[in-house]
């Protein structure tokens, strides 16, 4: 539903977005990840038609964003960064305005407003002026305007920014639920959010896409993915190391301490070792040698490590 092709945008001599292409289909939630200033917002502004691209094209549900901007925009809802609002209006007046611009009138309009008010829990502040609201309510008001026409396509720039953990969870669940029958793009720099809500992740760094895959695929790129984490209470680490290292399937052993200061062992598998094989191998050895295992766990890999690996921090 969203086809982005070779999108390029530069401001002066600085290339903000460089040849970015991706597609999002109905039922997909695409997480847009990247360090600050990587070009996430600029890309989204081009997808929503706010910025015209220097090169490349955006096609929304078959409508080109440059040639048929109005038709394309009708299909989508947009939550801009920081959730801008007309502060001197009441929540109701603001939603009424958004509904009218989306073509609702009369009973249909009241229904649409009622629907989003219920969905975003805005009932209690409906006739309050927006500038008296807390950040959470303001954010939900802006979110409500983005979904007032129940769009097929939803684009959100940092939808959970500035919310408390409960509200963040709420929004994530909402995104996940809506993602079942919509095409959604949202940007964030919170990695757990991506794991919680996305079916696909794109990591963008300095204007370029540096990774594109499911959260599991990306985590698999982590150096510790597939390794087994092991904690044994009864025996010394040296002894366990000696027994494990000759085993087929074990490539390398590494001792480390966790946050609580307990000693652990990380066992890295050979390349050809299958999923879960290493863990069962270790547990058999443990049984034979009568170890008291306190923890045994195959690592999935960590997104933050992958993220750090492939993006370059601007503080370096």
């Amino acid at each position: 539903m969203i086809n982005v092709d070779n999108l390029t945008k530069s401001f002066g001599s600085k290339v903000a977005v460089d040849n970015v292409s991706f597609n999002v289909e109905r039922g997909e939630v695409l997480g847009f990840l990247g360090p600050n200033g990587a070009g996430k917002s600029t890309t989204m502004r081009m997808v929503t038609g706010y910025f015209p691209p220097n090169d490349g094209s955006v096609v929304i549900g078959g409508f080109n964003m440059v040639e048929n901007a109005l038709e394309a925009r009708r299909l989508m809802g947009y939550l801009p960064e920081n959730g801008p609002l007309y502060a001197d209006m009441t929540v109701y007046n603001f939603l009424d305005f958004a509904a009218e611009l989306r073509g609702f009138s009369g009973i249909e309009k009241r229904k649409a407003i009622h629907r989003v008010v219920e969905m975003c829990f805005l009932e209690s502040v409906l006739h309050q002026s927006i500038d008296t609201l807390s950040k959470g309510y303001r954010h939900r008001t802006c979110f409500a305007q983005a979904v007032i026409h129940d769009p097929d396509i939803l684009i959100m720039d940092e939808p959970t920014d500035g919310l408390d953990p409960n509200q963040k969870h709420e929004i994530r669940m909402l995104i996940k639920r809506m993602g079942e029958n919509k095409a959604i793009i949202f940007s964030t720099h919170i990695l757990e959010e991506v794991e919680a809500a996305c079916s696909r992740v794109i990591i963008i760094d300095r204007g370029k896409i540096v990774a594109n895959g499911t959260p599991a695929e990306l985590k698999g790129r982590s150096p510790i993915a597939g390794a087994v984490r092991l904690r044994v209470g009864s025996h010394a680490l040296e002894q366990i190391k000696e027994q494990l290292s000759p085993l087929p399937g074990v490539r390398r052993l590494e001792a480390f301490k966790d946050e609580a200061g307990r000693e652990l062992l990380r066992v890295f598998p050979q390349k050809e070792t299958g999923d879960g094989e290493l863990a069962s191998l270790i547990s058999e050895t443990a049984k034979k040698s009568d170890w008291r295992i306190e923890e045994l766990h195959t690592e999935e890999g960590r997104l933050d490590e992958v993220f750090r690996d492939i993006t370059i921090s601007d503080t370096e």
């Binding site: 929503t48 706010y50 038709e71 925009r73």
Partner: peptide
């Protein structure tokens, strides 16, 4: 940004 990404010219 809100206003100009609505379906209005």
């Amino acid at each position: 940004e809100l206003l100009l990404t609505m379906p209005v010219t």
